[in-house]
Design a protein around this nucleic acid. Sequence first.
DNA 1: CGAGCATGGTTAACCGGGTAACCACGCACG
DNA 2: CGTGCGTGGTTACCCGGTTAACCATGCTCG
Lengths: 339, 339
Amino acid sequence: MSEPPRAPTVADVARLAGVSKATVSYVLSGRRSGSSRVSEETRQRVLDAVRSLGYAPNQSARALSRRRTDRVCLVLPRLGAPYFEQLAWDLTTAVAQHGFTLVLAIADEDDGRPVIMEQLRRRLTDGVVVAEGVHLAPDDLAALVPLNVAVVTMTDDPVPPGIDAVRSDASEACRGAVQYLAAEGHRRIAFIGHFLSKGRRHRKYDDYRAGLRASGLPLDRGLVVAGAASRAEAYRNAQKLLAQPHRPSAVFAASDIAAVSTMWAARDAGLRVPDDLAVVGVGDIPEDLVMNPQLTTVGPTSAGAAIVADLLISRLTGEAPAEGRTRLQTWELVRRGSA
Amino acid sequence: MSEPPRAPTVADVARLAGVSKATVSYVLSGRRSGSSRVSEETRQRVLDAVRSLGYAPNQSARALSRRRTDRVCLVLPRLGAPYFEQLAWDLTTAVAQHGFTLVLAIADEDDGRPVIMEQLRRRLTDGVVVAEGVHLAPDDLAALVPLNVAVVTMTDDPVPPGIDAVRSDASEACRGAVQYLAAEGHRRIAFIGHFLSKGRRHRKYDDYRAGLRASGLPLDRGLVVAGAASRAEAYRNAQKLLAQPHRPSAVFAASDIAAVSTMWAARDAGLRVPDDLAVVGVGDIPEDLVMNPQLTTVGPTSAGAAIVADLLISRLTGEAPAEGRTRLQTWELVRRGSA
DNA sequence: CGAGCATGGTTAACCGGGTAACCACGCACG
DNA sequence: CGTGCGTGGTTACCCGGTTAACCATGCTCG
């Protein structure tokens, strides 16, 4: 007897209000505002019916006929990084103002293609934001263009025309951090980081050298330590670095993990931070905050999300140029206590 | 001339393969396996057509006609807590094995109703998992039952029949942690935490007292410190605690923030952890890992996600009883270095 | 030889909403 | 007095899949 209770549909609303389905749809979508409108009286009848039935439009049906899902996807390489969380949150609120919902997808770090294609080809979302850290072959991006969907990348990979990109000026900020240390009077500034041997740039190391050069300081190989993949490794290497006879007075660490480990090594060696050793990190993980003193670090400003949202929305609403655009997400040195 | 390139549909596939839409659908869904199947030859023709067109079914259309979205939603009070991240990740993989996708929704901490209703009434998802920390009035939960959707709560609120619940035994684990300290020989075990005056239980404090009682230790008001809302406050209060003439030899901290702050206070007071002061926290934030020594803490086991997924899936596939079920998510003491 | 039944495939009616095109009515105007 | 037009609303088809019901063949067997 008792059917599985079906959710009310436009038809139900229409019946109750004594109008046609079309009228209900017009009332709810608020379209047709120019000519031949719906009379105020009918409008109210429809709205009353909607309320009394507790009607809410079925999103799948709407998406099917309107050919848009009102959803966008943020493709991340992983969860757990505070920067991504912040980005996710900022984007969520930014796109929400235009009626879009953000969904998250985690891509295989080495190849983001499957996840992204899945999202777009099955029309799960109207567009994607590809976060930094998701590796994508140039061809894969190019393959997205004909799907005519909105794509904004935050990676450093080159993008084909038709896709917007947001690039970070992390390099400049890192170089600036080294210059800052030099300006503070440090002559012996060490580098501790993670060298990717497989062709991919040792970006941070390049930045470090550029910073030294800009400050007129020589590069001292004895102050460069490679290997900070794990906390333990970073700690060991920092220990070695600090045990040198003529030790550095400052350290530029290529990651916050490395920086924090360096702080512990310093502390355990009886050195005070920042008096005996200044430490600057990169990445802005929240662990920074738990250290004592708190870590001075180079991190992305939160303005990035707004820029991404802006590009994405303008493409979704069709007011975007055919060629891709590139904008900048700024990073900056956040001075806390460690340098 | 050049139309906006439409994605291929079943009709396109059918035309190319020289069969009807229905056949394509049957091939792709793998249904109709019992009697009157599709011949192997036609099957191949269809699959070839699918491949050569790069066809992928439109999810909205599929959801509309099948009346299920194959999506489930995890409703969280906020992002940024590692426990939630882990839960999200575990659930994602768990439901994926049954063909479901997990989407995240952030609910207003005080009232999860709007978000959840939105999800379910608009049929954005087939079911929801309500995480701990999302407050929901009992009536709201009851209102979900007639929508006949899958709902699993992880909150401590009472649930109406028809909804499954997963409860945590955090209290037992906390009590156990105190007993553990006592068993290690500590006689003066302090409590530092956050008292919620507004009626909501001082759960952790109760657990602490229960632990003392079970260990035959007296409650010493001088060892109880309320106020650990911020790091700074926790640090100050820990300082006071440790400056006492007859200071504690162990601390049970009601949160990891409080525990970490206590560790810093100890360190700055010249006390070694765990030799001079043992510290146990609750919550399992990743900051635990950055401390030196690492923090011993009470946290939820990752088995929780499996339990939730199990309940959810069985409800989604309709093999669930009408009354709700309750299962337990276990918490346990993770011994690291601080106690 | 006709009933009975696998086998392999098709037709057509949904699912719930969006929207172009059309219609009916009343009123003003040349 | 037709024609034209603005207003308020309806009809009917489309979006892209799913699926129950039906149909055409060929074969077996009483």
